[in-house]
Structure formats: C-alpha cells, structure tokens
Design a protein around this nucleic acid. Structure first.
Lengths: 333, 333
DNA sequence: TATCAATGTCGAAGCGCTTCGACGTAGCTG
DNA sequence: CAGCTACGTCGAAGCGCTTCGACATTGATA
C-alpha cells in the first residue's frame, strides 16, 4: 500500500482485467443474463484479485434498489428491552439472508419516517410496537414502499402485520388455568403507561383473557404492573388484597416477572403461574415455570419474510397472527 | 394522486419550478456557495411545493458521502441488553444531530465488517463491546473510513476509543469502601464467559480493583456471576462462603443486581454495596443504592462526536476514558 | 445451403446528484 | 472612466452502476 493512492476499484477495472465489457461484469454479478462458464470464471477471478466491491450508492441510483430495510425500534419506557433485542436479532439475521442491511430508526425520530418513506434510502420498512391508534400507521400506509408492522393497529387498512395472537394467548392461559380447577384468576400485565397507550398487544391479551373467563365462568382480576422490582411486588400485593382467593395467575411482564415470583413465594401463596414471555426468560427463573412462548425472534424473521415477498411482487397485504403455545416446565429438573 | 404516476421529483424539477439551474438548487441545499436571499427563497418554496427529497444514492455517488454510519452491536450472551440499548440510543440520537442515519450490524455478522469497510455503504463505523484481543480491530484499523471503538482493545494502534474508565471505577469503589472502614471487600462481576473473553472492561475494572485494594491493604474476593436470578444468588453464596468476613461489595452485573441484593437481604448480611450500572438501573432497585454511574448513553454520544470529528478533518486518533463518579443514594426518601 | 432461434457479449444511455470552472454584473478604487 | 474584486449563477462533466437493444456466433431446422 505504498503511496496510499487506493482509488476504489470500479466495475470498469474489473471489466478491463477480465477483458470483457462492464455490462458483462454486471450480469455476472446479478445473474440476470446467461454468461458462459469460462467468461464467468474470468470475471470472478478479476473480482477476487482486485478486491472489487460494488458501490452501494451507484447501484441504488441505477437500479432504484438500496438493499436496505428500515427498522423502527421503540427505545422508550415500558417496553421490554430483552424482547426488543430478540425482535431486532430476528430481523437483522433474516434481512442478511436476503442480503439486505438494516437501517435503525427510533420511535421518537419523527422525521425518520418521512426521510425513509420518501423513497431512495431504504426499500422497505418494518415497524415495531405498533399501537392500536398509531399516528405512524397512516404515514406508512401512504408510503410508496412496502412495510410490515409488528403489532396490530386498530385499522390495518391494507397493511401487512405480524404478531403473536395475543387474544388467543389470553384465552389459552385462562383455559389452562380453569382446567386446572382455578376459580379465581389474576393477570399481572403490562406497565400502566403501556395499557394507557392502548398498545395493541396489551389490549388484545386482555380481550382474550376476559372472553375466555366469561366462557369458563371464572372470576378475574387484572393488575397493570411497573416493570421494576418494586412494581412487581406491589402488583402482587394489590392483586392479593383485592382478590385474595386468586389461585391462578398469568404474568405478562418480563421485567417484573422474577419479582412477582419472589413476592408470591414470600407471601406463602403458591398460585399456579403461567408467564407470557420468551422461552429463555422463562428458563432463567429460579423455579420451573409454565409459559406461553413469545416468539419474538420468529416474529422478527417473519416480518422480514413478508416485507421481502412484497418487495418481489404484488403480494396482497396480510395479517399473520402466530398461534400461542403453552409450554409446561420440564417435570424433572 | 389520480393516475398513480408519481415519478419521483428530482432536483431538476425543482430547478425548473424555481427557474434556476440545478447547481443553484444544490448550493441552496448544501450551503457551499453563497446564494442571494430571493433566489434561496424561490428554491425553498419550490422544494416545499413539490415535496422534493434528494435521492440518497445519487448523493452518495456524486459526493462519496453516504450520511450513514454503521453501528456494530453485540447481540449475544453475557452482555446486558439494557446497557446496550442505552448505548444505541445515544448513538442514534447523536447521529441524527449530524443528520446521519445508523446502519445496524451485529457482532456475529462476520461479513458485515467487510461489506462496510469496503467503502461506499457507510461513512464511518462505531463498534461496541470491544474485547482486549478483538479480531475485528485489525480489520477496522486497515479500513479506509474512520471508526471509533466503545471499549478498549489491548493495542489501540491508531484507533479512537471511548469508554468509562473502568480501572478508575475499580479504584474508586475500593477507595470508597475502604474509607467506610471495610477490611474485606468483594466484587461480584461479569458473567464467566465475559471474563473468559477478556472483554476489556471486565479486565480493567478488575485491575483497578486489585491495585487499589493492595494500596489500601484490604482483602478482596472476586466472583464472576451469571446474569440471572439464580446466578446472582449463587454468586452471593459463593462469595460469602469463601470470604465470610466480607462487609463491602462492588456489584458490576446489571442482570444479577436485584437478585444479589435480594439474596444479601435474605442472608441477613447487610454489606455496604456499591453498584456499577446506569443511573436508572440503580434507581429501579428496591433499596436506595450507592452506585458508580455507567454513562452508557453519554458514551454512545461521545463515540459519534469523535467519529464525526474524524470525518471532518484529519483529527488524530485519541482514546477518551470518562471519569467515573460515585453517586450516594438520596438520604431521605 | 439459406434461415431462424437461442445464446453470449457489447455499447451506450441514463439514474439524480455534486462540484468545478466560467461567466456576467455590480460596486469599488485609482 | 478603465480595471478590479466580489458575488451570485450557470453549464457541463462526471460519480459507478444497471439495463436495453443490438450484434455476432453457433447449431439446428427447413
């Protein structure tokens, strides 16, 4: 690297080296036209020798495809970072499978949507943590590029959505607990601010929970819960004070879960607990725990699959709700 | 929007509308040449009316600036997601201040570095969670574009780094505890795998801790600790078993912190505890807690500042270690 | 043997933007 | 009033890539 000149090597350099035209190199790269084996080999060799990398901007300009998708992540209170990370991991990994990169947008970056939906910078958009009445939804609905929502807005008007079927999860939990003979069932749920925002998943879980409780004829009690040690303990105390007969419990609050369990242990009450959380969170608890899995990573991957499908062709918008599964703790330890 | 034609509006459209040349529009946008007030106003109006957005790819091609920085995030075991999110938040927010976007790379995406360092796709790189002997370090060192590491490699060979001064933090903790009269001090630290990786911060904290302990003539005991409820409790038990006289404790493990505190409370031991963690984590504990603040967001912001400075001009590489501060809990509550 | 389709390659025209040099047109100075 | 220097604006040349139509070849078919 004497001289430190290092002019970036372009497709023309490759073409010259391989003694073909630039278009041939391009076709070798994209595979959009047949290239004979010997030519292909020469080109590939030249690419390797020169260490050629296509220029992303030039490519985007010529093909109007950026090979990048935007991911809008909530970095704010009340959402569980652990779950978010799983989503993000799933999205990034799957995007790479499609040789796309991920541009990170934060929820509070209001101009971000504009920047991104005005084309040119990403091909598509995945938006996490959608609320029932989310102001961003009309914006992305009006955008040129495809987008997929993680979560369910009140009116998905032609948008694609993925999420766990929280309503089914609510029903499943009640069905499970009622079948175990419990007559009074509690729900320790999302933080109050999440409930207040009518974040879609909290509402849906609640709906399923209520519906099935009515069907099964069991009494229920719902407590919002701060995602903190103190919050978890307080929620338990409130719940037991108001509904002392509670013997079955659904906990949907990552952050508070260990403290809820700890507090329950302290009070000497041992209600039947079902947690709604990712598998590894359930596994990390001190006691074996029945849980309804929150397949965050799978949801992230699915979101990318859907967005890619729409990028390929005119796939109609669809909403996919993943069926919940209740996992019993391993009997032996 | 009848007809759904929607040809993207280009800089030429704006120029035509404003009755100026394209270059004038460009100069209005970039401010790189003086433009008279009336002309500027006409152009700005045209931009607003047409809803013009510059095409990122075209811009990147012409100016060889993408206005994007890459952020390599560890999505793997042993790192605390909460802290990571704070870093990320800081990076993204500050990048936006410089009107840059953030491209998300994951640690395990080995080809990511290649893709990114071969120019064209981002202007610069911020890499989190650097280990003492990190294989990625030589790669970014050889790259064309500036990069900033969060964490400290063994040999920073001309690279810019930012981090909390963990060594000073270790010393500070010991000094504080020794000053309070404690003769036996414990450290409940990072998970074993982090220790084993020789992740830079864990090593440095330990070094400071040891150094100062020797100086102060206090006995120490170090326990790695899984970031789980069970891990936290187990670490406490191990520590107290091996060094029952421990009366002062430094805890550097976000995930285990609440469980460490809980276990300590159960054992009836009330050692003087200092936590090393972000302020909000300390605040979220059930008891008031002295802590050395881990200013994750500030570090993230600083990383961006540094990378931007290097993007501007030929700023020499530098390492910034932020001085630790010990925060006493609010006396009254 | 003339014709045609298939196959592989090439040339050139952009994609939308930045930037450099050049070109007026003022307002100064001497 | 000639000769300057600023200042504001324009034209045109790319940046590196994709893609379309055209142009050989070749082998098979009539």
């Amino acid at each position: 690297m004497i001289g430190r000149v290092k002019r970036t090597v372009t497709i023309d350099d490759v073409a010259r080296e391989a003694k073909v035209s630039t278009s041939t190199v391009s076709y070798v790269l994209s595979g959009k036209r047949p290239i004979s084996a010997p030519t292909r080999k020469r080109v590939e060799q030249a690419i390797a020798e020169l260490g050629y990398r296509p220029h992303a901007g030039a490519r985007a300009l010529a093909s109007s495809r950026t090979n990048t998708i935007a991911l809008m992540v909530p970095l704010r209170v009340g959402v569980n970072v652990h779950v978010i990370m799983e989503f993000v991991g799933g999205v990034v990994a799957r995007a790479r499978d499609f040789s796309h990169d991920v541009l990170l947008l934060t929820q509070d970056d209001v101009s971000g949507l504009d920047r991104v939906t005005s084309g040119s910078i990403v091909d598509a958009l995945v938006m996490m943590d959608v609320e029932a009445d989310d102001p961003r939804v009309p914006v992305v609905a009006a955008a040129d590029q495809p987008s997929v929502l993680i979560g369910l807005p009140a009116d998905p008007e032609g948008l694609s959505c993925v999420d766990l079927d929280f309503e089914a999860a609510g029903r499943l939990a009640v069905r499970h607990l009622a079948a175990a003979g419990h007559q009074e069932i509690g729900l320790i749920g999302a933080p109050p601010e999440v409930m207040a925002r009518h974040t879609s998943y909290a509402d849906r879980l609640l709906r399923g929970f209520r519906t099935q409780a009515e069907l099964a004829g069991v009494a229920i009690r719902v407590e919002p819960c701060e995602a903190s040690p103190a919050g978890g303990r307080a929620a338990v105390d409130r719940l037991l004070a108001k509904a002392p007969g509670t013997t079955g419990l659904l906990v949907h609050n990552e952050g508070a879960l260990p403290h809820v369990l700890a507090r329950l242990a302290e009070t000497g009450r041992q209600p039947d607990v079902v947690a709604l959380c990712p598998a590894d969170v359930a596994a990390a608890q001190t006691v074996p725990l029945a849980h309804i899995e929150l397949p965050a990573e799978a949801i992230g991957r699915t979101a990318v699959d859907m967005v890619m499908a729409r990028l390929e062709g005119e796939v109609p918008a669809e909403t996919r709700l993943l069926a919940p599964a209740l996992i019993q703790p391993r009997p032996a330890s």
